[in-house]
Design a binder for these strands. Structure first.
Length: 271
DNA sequence: AGGCAGGCTTTTA
DNA sequence: TAAAAGCCTGCC
């Protein structure tokens, strides 16, 4: 089936933006995306058209929301004038095409824990291993197997060695603790989706192994709190180098997280 | 109390 | 060898 996307949408940039780790480039025009228990092949066809291997209703129920197609990222970009913030404007010009995906909160909770102190290939490998070790096996439209991201119960059931085999290193305890918190109902992700950003971050940082940065990643990428602002080493450099007199969080609300994502990608690509 | 150094697994460049 | 979408513990 063919789809048309007129707003900002650049699969290359999204795949490299550090928010999703189960996008795999399979050829020059095509990405294979695993999200929840679905797998999508999406190929660039024309300027704003793409081929997808699902029907209309599956696209509407699973992928339209995943790609956050109700939000205009062009409009979010245009809230900032070039003379108002030359650095941010330039970052957005370079990284135009990024969107904030609506990913599963539980998957983003574990994924964000795994990202700490690691680079993207290593993160992808751990997530893939974890899914293979205890996630359900399914088959995509091309007959290839893929593994659904594990449930909390499936991760809780793993022992130390099995988690270490997923190359989690010292993070294995954090992954286990987060899975346990969700499995036990100490953390209710459905309720967090209705909570404020601040309340969500407060609850998430109560979990062993989850600090402010990871909690904000979960809020932004898993709870779609577009104002959440994950502050990592790269963003710290941005704030130090480009905003020595302070960053205008108030005037960029409620899209601080979106702007953060442009700046993050831009600074990593232009060191 | 709040800030800071040191350590942690493994991979990547 | 250092750095990588950090966090915890222990010490002051």
């Amino acid at each position: 089936m063919m789809i048309t996307i007129t707003d900002d949408f650049d699969p290359e940039k999204i795949a490299a933006s550090g928010q999703c780790f189960r996008w795999r480039k399979v050829d020059e025009k095509t990405y294979r995306i695993i999200a929840a228990d679905h797998c999508l092949y999406i190929s660039q066809d024309g300027d704003q058209t793409y081929q997808v291997d699902c029907d209309e209703s599956t696209f509407q129920t699973e992928w339209y929301s995943y790609f956050d197609l109700d939000e205009s990222y062009q409009a979010v970009r245009e809230r900032i004038a070039p003379e108002q913030d030359p650095f941010l404007w330039q970052a957005m010009e370079h990284e135009k095409g990024i969107r904030i995906l609506r990913q599963d909160p539980w998957e983003m909770l574990i994924t964000s824990v795994i990202t700490q102190n690691r680079n993207i290939p290593a993160i992808q490998r751990s997530i893939e291993l974890l899914s293979q070790v205890c996630g359900n096996r399914q088959y995509d439209s091309r007959g290839h197997e893929f593994f659904v991201f594990p449930t909390p119960g499936q991760i809780v059931a793993l022992n130390e060695q099995q988690l270490l085999d997923c190359k989690l290193g010292y993070r294995w305890k954090y992954v286990h603790a987060a899975a346990e918190a969700v499995a036990d109902g100490k953390i209710n992700l459905l309720k967090l989706q209705k909570a404020s950003c601040g309340e969500a971050v407060r609850q998430l940082t109560g979990i062993y192994g989850i600090g402010n940065k990871v909690a904000n990643c979960v809020a932004l990428f898993g709870l779609h709190q577009l104002d959440a602002f994950p502050q990592d080493v790269w963003i710290n450099r941005v704030l130090e180098n480009e905003y020595p007199n302070g960053y205008p969080f108030e005037s960029y609300s409620p899209y601080n997280g979106v702007y953060q994502q442009y700046m993050f990608a831009y600074y990593r690509n232009h060191p």
